[in-house]
Every structure is written in C-alpha cells, then in structure tokens.
Amino acid sequence: MDSETSDRYMQGLLDDQSLYPSIDVSGLRDRLFRLPGQCIEAWSKTKLLQVNIDSREIKNVVIIGMGGSAIAGDLLIDMASAQKTVPISVVRDFSLPMKIDSSTLVVACSYSGQTEETLALYDEAASYGAKFLVIGSGGALVSKAESKNEMILTVDLASEPRSAVAYSLVLLLGALSRLGIISVDGDDVRDSVAFLTATVNGLKEDVSYETNLAKQLATNCLSKSPVIYGGGIFTGMARRWKTQINENSKSWAFYETIPELLHNSIEAYASDHNDEKFIILLRPSIGDDRLLSRYDILGKMLSEYEIPFQTIEGDSHSMLSQILNMLALGDYVSYYLALVRGVDPAPNPVINRAKSFNE
C-alpha cells in the first residue's frame, strides 16, 4: 500500500465515529476532552489549601512519585527552571539519593496513594524531619498525611493516573505559588485553559483527519518506533509523549533531550535502520536562543540523513499555555495510535501483571 492510499485508509478509519466506542470501551476519549475543566478545578482547589509551614524556611523541593504521578513534577521543573527557583528535583525510586532535612519540602504524589516506592520514600523523608505536601486520591499515603496534619491536595478524578497529569501539574503550580516558591499568574492560568479548550476542540475524535494534527501524527507513527526530542520547557514533555505512547498505544517509543542528544545519540544517524524510526521534535516558541538553534541543526541533519521527522511548534503564548497544549496533543496522538492499532488505550494489563508479582 503506497503512502497516499495508506493516508486515505487511515483517514476513513479515524473519521469513522463507530470505531471509538467499539475499541475505547471505557471512554478515555471523554476524559481527554475534559482536560481543560480538570485544570480549572485543580486551580480552584489550591486556593483552599491550608498552608501550615513557613515557606521562608524551604531551601529545596523534592517531588517523589512514579509513573504519571511523577511526570507532573518533570513538567513543573521545566517551568521553574525559567524562574531560577530553589532547587527542585524528582525522585523515582525506593530510597532518596540525597540528604534532606527540615528545610526540604517533599511533595509526595501518588494517584492511588498505594504506590510502594512513594510510600517508602515518604517514610524515609519523614525520618529526616522533612516538611510535606501530599497529592493523591486517597490510600495509605493520604492517611499518613492526615494523621500528621500535613498539607494535602486531593485528586478528585475517576481516571487512570496518567490521565490526571494536567490536574496534578496545576495542583503543584498552585500550591508552590501559594508558598512563594514559583510565580504563577491567575490570569495566565485562565488564558492558558481557554487556549487549551480551543486546542482540545480541534483534536477530538469528530474533527476530520484533514485538519486534526493528532490523527495525522498517529498515522505517521504507525509501523515506526517514535523517538521524541524535547528541550527547554519541553524537556519533560518528551518523556511524557514517550510514556503515553507506551501506555495508551501499547507501542515502543523513546525520548531524548536537547542539547544532550547532540553529544551522543546523533551518531546513530549513520546507521542502516533509519527508516524504522520517526523523530518528533517538540520545539518551544520561547527559550534560550542557543537551544533553539540546536533544533535548526537537528532539522538539517535529519534531512541530510533522510530520517523521517516532524517538528511540532509550541504556540506563541506563555510557558504554561505551551505545556498544557503540547500535553493535550501528545495524549491525543497516543490515543489515536492505539485506535489504529486496534487496542483499547485505557487498560494496562502488562503493568498490572508486573505488579502482581509483588503481591
């Protein structure tokens, strides 16, 4: 099947509205569509947070979590880096790799509240006298925090943990803004969500393939191994796209960060297997000019080596707007890729099987 015939086939498939309920039986498409509303709800919730610590004592922030619960921390760090805040790091492990004390704010993120690694990190951090903010929907983690009268923000969503990333990100932004660690303007949040609403309206399943970028990108990823490139405010976003393709599409995907990949990964451009890859460059519209020049270099080199690629430009709005909109696009790309592969995007049977070995 040539590319033109393939595109017509994919267009007909993804524009057939009967496809969605037949494969997406839990209605993940509806949860994706509610993304803007989730952001508004999360922002409102942070206004009610009972701050019970002196933020002037905070010298560093450590976000602990796994999977989708940790991704929000990556996205937060990309925004915080532009503001030169106190050091913020994300830990995904069973134990802390650094010393912490009472001047450390530990943000424990677990949608279920039952994640083994996060609970272990929480207990260790507590033994060092760290201060806490807990984000979750319940479980042992929230119970521990309640018993110690720690700050808690609940995730009130009935969804997969990975579908709550935007909600968790806005909770993080609002909470750290209340603590004076990062600056977030309420008008920017409202404007960003308004723009996000327009983006989601242009990506949902009843929007034609001809104008739906997510459907087109999903088609380009089919029968390829997507490799996501991201730098600046899209450093964490590259990981997010990769993990969404893994979990939603049940497909291999990889990510690389700019400028680091120019010091190692590009040597693979000379290999004989370039036609098996599809490179997606997530390019922010704002950032260090030196970083943005690396995107230009990569575009030239990928063309020279005849490696299939596509550059996705961030919108011309704020950092928050770019992050939320690129998040939504990646979620929809992984969703449509699942549909064209004929797999239900919501369940994660292999992940659940791995967890069962620890029971």
Rank of each mutant, 00 (worst) to 15 (best):
F132E: 08
S102R: 10
V170M: 15
L133V: 05
S192Y: 09
A194I: 13
V165A: 15
L203V: 11
E205G: 14
L203K: 10
V134H: 09
D123Q: 08
C109I: 14
G180W: 04
L121H: 01
D191H: 11
R178I: 11
A120T: 12
V170C: 13
T197L: 06
Y167W: 04
G113L: 00
A158M: 12
N149F: 07
K144L: 05
I152C: 03
P161D: 08
I181D: 04
R178W: 06
S192M: 09
V134Q: 07
A126I: 06
L121I: 02
F132L: 12
L203G: 05
K204H: 11
R162V: 09
N149D: 15
L172K: 11
K204Y: 10
S183M: 14
L141R: 01
E150V: 04
V170Q: 11
R178L: 12
D188G: 03
A140V: 07
I182D: 12
S168M: 11
S192G: 02
Y111W: 02
E124G: 06
L141P: 00
L196Q: 02
C109E: 04
G136M: 03
G138W: 00
D101C: 02
A198H: 12
S168A: 12
V134F: 01
S112Y: 01
L141E: 00
A198D: 13
A130M: 08
T197D: 08
I135D: 01
A120I: 07
N201T: 07
D123K: 12
R162T: 08
S103G: 11
D206S: 11
D156V: 08
Y111M: 02
S103Q: 12
Y111N: 05
L121E: 04
L105I: 10
V165G: 13
V184S: 05
V107N: 10
T197Y: 00
G174Q: 03
T199S: 09
S103P: 05
A108P: 06
S192A: 14
A130I: 11
D123G: 10
T199E: 10
K148A: 10
S159A: 14
A125F: 00
A130S: 15
T115M: 04
D101A: 05
L176Y: 04
P97Y: 06
I100H: 07
S183I: 09
M98R: 09
L105Q: 07
G136E: 06
S168V: 14
Q114P: 09
N201R: 10
D187T: 12
G139V: 00
V189G: 07
D191L: 09
M98S: 13
E160G: 15
A125T: 05
I181G: 08
L203S: 02
C109M: 05
G138E: 01
L171W: 01
E160K: 13
I181T: 00
I181A: 02
S147C: 10
L105S: 07
S159L: 05
K99E: 15
I182W: 03
D187C: 08
Y128P: 14
D188T: 04
